[in-house]
Each structure stands twice: as C-alpha cells, then as structure tokens.
Write a protein that binds this DNA or RNA. Sequence first.
DNA 1: TGTACAATGTAGCCTAGGCTACACATTGTG
DNA 2: CACAATGTGTAGCCTAGGCTACATTGTACA
Lengths: 154, 154
Amino acid sequence: MSSPKSATVEPVNPDLAPIEQQAAGFEAVREARRSETAEDYVELIDDLIKAMGEARVVDVAARMGVSHATVNRILARLSKEGLVNTQPYRSIFLTEAGADLAQQSRERHRIVVEFLCALGIDEATAERDAEGIEHYVSTETIEAFQTWTGKLAK
Amino acid sequence: MSSPKSATVEPVNPDLAPIEQQAAGFEAVREARRSETAEDYVELIDDLIKAMGEARVVDVAARMGVSHATVNRILARLSKEGLVNTQPYRSIFLTEAGADLAQQSRERHRIVVEFLCALGIDEATAERDAEGIEHYVSTETIEAFQTWTGKLAK
DNA sequence: TGTACAATGTAGCCTAGGCTACACATTGTG
DNA sequence: CACAATGTGTAGCCTAGGCTACATTGTACA
Ligand SMILES: [Mn+2]
Ligand SMILES: [Mn+2]
Ligand SMILES: [Mn+2]
Ligand SMILES: [Mn+2]
C-alpha cells in the first residue's frame, strides 16, 4: 500500500505460522472436502438399503434435500470412481469399496455424535454438527473423541 | 430392484431419521460450506495486515496454497459481498464487515484449537483439524468447547 | 389391458473455486 | 534512467454440485 513494498523473501514479523505448513493445512482441508460428498452419499445409500431394502434416486434426493437431477449427476461420478453400481431405472447398489467407505463413514459419524452428546450437546444439534465435522477429523482426533466419550460418561 | 416398488409415501422401516430433518441437516452443512472460503480468507488477510502491515495477493496465495489467479477470483467475490476493498495493484483491505467476520473467525478457530489441545491432541494436528472443523460447529457446541477446555485443563 | 402417474434420465444453465498462460504495472537496482 | 524482476490482472479451460425443464421408462390400478 503506502510504503515501499518489501522483498518477497520472508516476514519482518512475528506470530505467523510457517508458510508451507499453513498451505499444507488448507490443502488438507480441500482434500477432505473432495471426499465429503462421496462419504455422505454412500452412507445414506447404505442406510436406505438396510432400512428399506433398496436405495432409490428419489429417496436419496429427498433425504439429501437436493433435486433428483443432482443425485443422478453425483451417482455418475461415484460410479466412475467405483463406489456404486447403477443400471438405468434400477435402484442403487454399493460396490465393495462403496460398502467399506459407507461403514467407515457411519462409524466416524457415530463417534462424533456420541462425543458431542457426552459433552452435553443435545442430540439434534450433535447430529447436525457431526454431519459437517465428521469429514474433517483426523484419526488422532477421532481416537481422542472415543477415549473421552468413555471418560466423560462417568 | 427385484421386488415391486412400494408407494412413495413413507418407509415400512425402522431407525431412519425423519426425512425433512435429515434434509435440513445436509442443507445446513451446504450453507456452512458456502461461508467457509470467505471466513478463511478474511481471517488470513487480517493476520497478514496485523503481522506484516499489509496483505498482498501473492502472500495470500502462498499461505492458502493456491495460485494468485485463484486469489484474485475469490477477492472479486468477497469485494462484491462487501467484505474487502481492493484497488488495482494495491494491497487488500478489509471492510468493517470483513474485519468483524475475521475477528469472529479467528475467535472460533482459537476456541476449537484450544479445545482439541485440551483433549490431548498435539498442536499441529489440532491446528489442522480446526481449520476444517471450525466452519461446522454450532454456537452451542462452541460454547460447550469453551466450557470443557477450562474443566479439562484441571 | 390401457393408461395415468411416479420415477428416472438428460440437456442446458449457473456459481464456486481450481489451474495455466500470457499481458501489464510497479519497483528496486545497476 | 532504464530495465529486469516481481507482483498483479485476466482470459480461457476444467470439475463439482446446484437448478429447471423436458423426455423416457416402469408400475399400479381402473
Ligand atoms: Mn457428513
Ligand atoms: Mn454422515
Ligand atoms: Mn478454516
Ligand atoms: Mn481458520
């Protein structure tokens, strides 16, 4: 702005994280965001199959709160990625990889919800927050959540 | 799939959340995702101004781990939304709204990091996880985090 | 058995946020 | 003062994930 611009090299400053470390952090978040949709879809599809015997586009759309056109588009991607199998006008199936991902996702989801509840959050709020948080917790943090859920319950 | 498709009406099933509630939950997550970029950018811009006297496109790009073209594109949006002021070839300024959002974001970020650390997570991991989690915690949960950080410290 | 209606598929549009390549401005230095 | 290096702007491309509108298929029931 006003004063002459300093060389690019490095801060003259205090208290900022190392550049590469901060960039890696944001990159990790973007990476997690990339898997978010896939995780939520396979988890929901698995839930529907378990509860209703089959997963239909129209039900996935209603529960995700999006149009069926959006669901179709996302299913095409998941299919390309080997997570679901679809045939025209048939209901949706999970591949083995898809079923595995669904199980892991459900497990992580459960751990986050139970932890938040153990903290005293009401269940509806815990459920809502978990739906976002679940995709951004590292393995270490998930394990800490599990541990603390036990301790806090006492 | 195999058996005749049942009427749309409603499950014949157990243990699934109410449709509208689940859809509202996913919608809330999508809503949070919309503000994520804005929050991270104004927070970073504010940090840079505080630490280095000014926020330059090239430094934002390096710390976000993206190209400067991406930063310019996002700044155009933030400007349209009244969070930043930019003039060609000048460094970036926050509007009052932008500065307010930055402060709130930094505060939430701090609370999440401190909570995770109190749980025993190492600081680098806490910092990484917080960068994602911070955008998906409700007010209730943030307050619970604050409360528990005190208690766990003891 | 026809046919209306529900479900599915698809085309075309939009925004956000990535990228590279290239053009232009600013600035520090020889 | 010129000019190379650095920083900034922008065009054009891409993918993801939203939408509506319309076409097609499958199913239920009159
Ligand atoms: Mn989720
Ligand atoms: Mn989930
Ligand atoms: Mn963040
Ligand atoms: Mn942050």
